[in-house]
Amino acid sequence: MKEAILRTEKLTKKYKDFLALDQATITVNKGDIYGLIGRNGAGKTTLMKTVTTLTNKTSGEYYLFGKNNEDLTECKRRIGCLIESPAFFEGMTAYQNLKYYAIQKGIVDKKKIDEVLELVKLTESKDKKFKTFSLGMKQRLGIAFAMLDNPDFVILDEPINGLDPIGISELRDTLKKLNEEQGVTMMISSHILSELYLIANRFCFIDNGRIIKEITKEELDAECSKSIAIKTNQVKEALVILEKELGTTNYKVIDDSEIRLYDYLDNAGKVNKTLAANDIDVIGIYEAGITLEEYFKSIVREG
């Protein structure tokens, strides 16, 4: 039974008249890389701020490492986060900024600062003042800060914002390594699905403050994967033909007028011919399979 690092139950946050989070219920398990996907203003940042106590919840509950309310403060030691844009002291260098927080957190070994700068490839810039940093460097310093205190749970709000393609790829490798080698659980939000797809193992779609869907990568693959959609009113008979004549059981019945076939993907014509030859009235046969963007749009529309 995997330990739930973060669990929310009907978490709601209302700003005056604006409902930023509406009855959000999610679970992040140990070892997950949990991708939080939503449009701008969907509530991703609000969710993150609420569970790190930067904002008070309006109603609902959330449990970090199984603890909530008063016991929460000590648990937050095990979290590292980067929420909204990275904020540091302009007049201090990268190293000094991290040292400031290292002293504040009571970190005993100052070598960790160098280690974490090395992790995000900021070692050459460690003595440059924060105000001279480019957006990408600021972002990387923010990520370095999140990793500073050996966290067990890392929360990153749009971490690839401002990074160039090489930086994105390096970050992806770093995060994957941390997750695999040290078992660090992660919650990463982004509105760039394709990037998140490469790294996360579970996804959560959020829109207008509501959780539309929580889904694993395997399930997502299955729903998005390429298939042949066969539209017919004789679904049962068609299934028999698929098994007997075409020798496949790799299909899914969508409803009583549509079958999705995951075999013969290059040979829809043969499928059509076989079905027709066996008196199955094929209303339509076409290639299905959607990109992640289309999938996202579809479920957002439904939700």
């Binding site: 140990k30 030691r77 095990r78 957190k105 009571g106 970190i107 005993v108 070994d109 205190d149 050996n150 966290p151 067990d152 040290q182 078992g183 660090v184």
Partner: peptide, 23 residues
């Protein structure tokens, strides 16, 4: 099962060295 290490709350140099060794 955590990656956490020990932290210092009191600024005593000897304790700090001791904590480093335990870490």
């Amino acid at each position: 099962d955590s990656n956490q290490l020990l932290h210092e709350k009191l600024s005593d140099r000897d304790i700090k060295v001791f904590l480093k060794k335990i870490n």
